[in-house]
């Protein structure tokens, strides 16, 4: 084959790769029953948390006796697209903050209420309610150069081998996505549905809980909730999933 023909063949093979996004939501790896459960708000167990979050949003709390709505008004307007932009830089601390961290900050500083617990029902419900307002919107990480170091730290953690099993996130979720670990299909690890209802957990959970889940499977010391590492990994994954649609509250097996 002459050189020109070779070139044509190579370009022809490369074109489809450019034309379509190879990224797939965890949704695409699920069976039709679980997909249907997510899509139907009356069947999606995550919607119960969204409703609970809505009640919390409108309830005055703390010494300030202010509700979230007292400042932010109608969440369907004010919170639209917010979850798609986190983690973001916190101007005050000059460090990256995740959405859950921002809610805690609001609770404590503006409502003068006790800090809600990470992975507790109050914080998960509020996160689910706020996240729901961005459903079907594209993940849009902030164009903030100050986040570069955080994302770089997240990228390094994603590729770092950890635990007694000596795995990295990338080895499974990049190199072996679509394969099966035992019975379980390995998804591409996109953070586009959190907090989500996991059938295995029988409850709603955060992305950071999912990290801990994976890491204990690797027999690694998990990143603590709200830690710099967990937020860095989250920031990296959100950047990696930029443009993909949020599904909050998603359902996953």
């Amino acid at each position: 084959m002459n050189r020109l023909a070779c070139l044509v063949v190579v370009i022809g093979m490369a074109l489809p790769a450019f034309a379509q996004d190879a990224r797939k939501s965890g949704f695409d790896y699920m069976g039709p029953d679980t997909q249907a459960m997510q899509k139907d708000d009356l069947a999606n167990p995550g919607m119960l948390s969204v409703l609970e979050g809505e009640t919390l949003w409108n309830t005055p709390t703390g010494k300030a006796q202010k509700s979230c709505a007292a400042c932010h008004g109608d969440a369907t307007q004010s919170m639209k697209g917010v979850a798609a932009r986190y983690p973001a830089m916190d101007d005050k601390t000059q460090s990256a903050i995740d959405l859950a961290g921002r809610i805690i900050q609001c609770r404590v500083e503006r409502q003068e209420a006790p800090a809600p617990q990470r992975e507790g029902r109050e914080l998960l419900s509020l996160s689910a309610f706020v996240g729901r307002q961005s459903r079907d919107m594209p993940i849009s990480p902030p164009q903030d150069a100050k986040l570069a170091a955080t994302r770089a730290q997240g990228a390094a953690l994603y590729s770092a081998r950890m635990g007694q099993l000596n795995f990295s996130c990338a080895q499974c979720h990049d190199d072996n996505a679509g394969g099966h670990l035992g019975a379980a299909p390995i998804p591409q690890a996109h953070p586009n549905g959190y907090p989500l209802y996991r059938l295995e957990w029988q409850s709603l959970g955060s992305l950071q809980r999912r990290f801990r889940n994976c890491m204990s499977g690797m027999r690694a010391e998990p990143f603590a909730a709200g830690s710099t590492e967990a937020i860095a990994l989250e920031a990296f994954l959100m950047e990696r999933a930029a443009g993909m649609k949020l599904e909050t509250p998603a359902v996953r097996p």
Binding site: Q164, N166, F167, D175, N176, S216, R219, A220
Partner: peptide, 15 residues
């Protein structure tokens, strides 16, 4: 990707 079955050092963040 295969874990080292008989090694206990040079591993990070082991639980």
């Amino acid at each position: 990707i295969m874990p080292p079955y008989y090694r206990s050092e040079g591993l990070e963040r082991v639980a």
